[in-house]
Computed example of a mutant assay.
Amino acid sequence: MTSSEWAAVDRYIVDSLVADPDSEAALVANAAAGLPAIDVSPAQGKFLYLLARTARARRVLEIGTLGGYSTIWLARAVGAEGRVVTLEFAARHAEVARANLDRAGLGARVEIRVGAALDNLPGVAEDEPEPFDLVFIDADKINNANYVLWALRLTKPGSVIIVDNVVRSGALVEEESEDPGVQGARAAIELLDAEPTLTATVVQTVGAKGWDGFAYAVVNGENDE
């Protein structure tokens, strides 16, 4: 199949199962503000929502807000009593995200922290003593392994950790790649493999966003094999 065929299937899926005015409005606002079009796809956004619902997540940490598109789906999933803490490097992006969340009626569920995620995560650990049920990592790819380590610190047995964009159009297998994103993805997967407190896999995806995939990990408990 070609990328155009993948995109056509995506359009059918979105029209049939995902069409949503609030999240669509966020994408329009992001484009109008000049944000890069690197959000998760609509089908992937709803999949995040369903994963969070399945995990019964009430506390979510997102590393990489952009314009808040994925944040909208996660904030819906946690429910009216839930909470999302999301970290965004660029103040302009955070401003757009806040407007999108407020327009969707979800602003009260979400705290946006602005600045480099690795600088903000110690503050999150200090201010949020209760562990997170789900961590979604979709920020600068070179730091993926560092973000996974922080996710481990901030979660509990049974929590879910998702790392987006790890397949890199197949470049993931290129051990000698000089692409920082590829090396960041490989470092994260090597950590997921080596870390005894995690059980993980990678799911490849195709669609309007091309060929990529995400890592999915669960924090083990005492009775897990």
Rank of each mutant, 00 (worst) to 15 (best):
A52L: 05
E88R: 02
V78F: 00
A94N: 01
E175A: 14
V206H: 08
A97V: 02
H93L: 02
I137A: 03
E95G: 06
A37V: 13
A108C: 00
A91Q: 12
A19M: 07
L50K: 10
S23N: 01
G105Y: 07
S23T: 15
T197F: 07
I189Y: 14
D15Q: 13
R11T: 09
A125I: 11
F214T: 06
V14G: 04
N146W: 13
V60H: 06
I63S: 14
L191G: 13
Q204D: 11
G107A: 05
L87S: 02
T65E: 13
H93N: 12
A187R: 14
D164L: 07
N143P: 11
A104P: 01
E111K: 07
D127A: 15
Q204S: 11
L35N: 04
E95H: 03
S4Q: 14
V166H: 03
T205Y: 00
L27M: 12
T2M: 10
G213I: 01
T199N: 11
R113Y: 01
L198P: 03
A187L: 09
G123V: 07
V14P: 05
K141C: 08
T2L: 12
I161K: 04
F47R: 03
I38R: 12
D133L: 06
T2H: 11
R58L: 01
L17K: 09
P21T: 11
P131E: 13
G210C: 00
R83P: 02
D22F: 15
D10Q: 03
I142V: 13
Y12K: 05
V202E: 03
E62C: 06
S16W: 07
W6E: 01
G184Y: 10
V135L: 13
T155L: 14
L101I: 07
E130Y: 09
I162V: 15
I162S: 04
G207P: 09
D193G: 14
L50W: 05
E190P: 02
A33K: 00
A116L: 11
A99Y: 09
I142C: 03
E130T: 15
L106S: 04
R92Q: 13
E195L: 08
S177P: 01
T197Y: 03
A25P: 04
L134E: 09
G184M: 12
S177A: 05
V84F: 05
S16P: 01
N223L: 15
L192W: 07
K156M: 07
T86R: 00
R186Y: 14
E88A: 02
K156P: 03
L121W: 11
D179P: 05
E24Q: 12
G79V: 08
A32N: 06
V173Q: 03
L118E: 12
V167G: 01
I112T: 04
W211L: 10
R113E: 08
P122T: 09
N146I: 09
L17I: 09
V114W: 00
G105E: 02
A139H: 04
E174H: 05
L192K: 08
L17Q: 10
G181Q: 12
A116V: 13
W211Y: 15
K156W: 05
G67H: 04
V167A: 03
R98V: 07
A200V: 12
G210N: 00
G67V: 01
A90I: 00
V84L: 03
R76D: 04
G115Q: 06
A188R: 08
A32M: 06
V28R: 02
E130K: 12
D22K: 12
P122C: 06
R56T: 15
A139D: 09
A104E: 03
P21I: 11
R56Y: 10
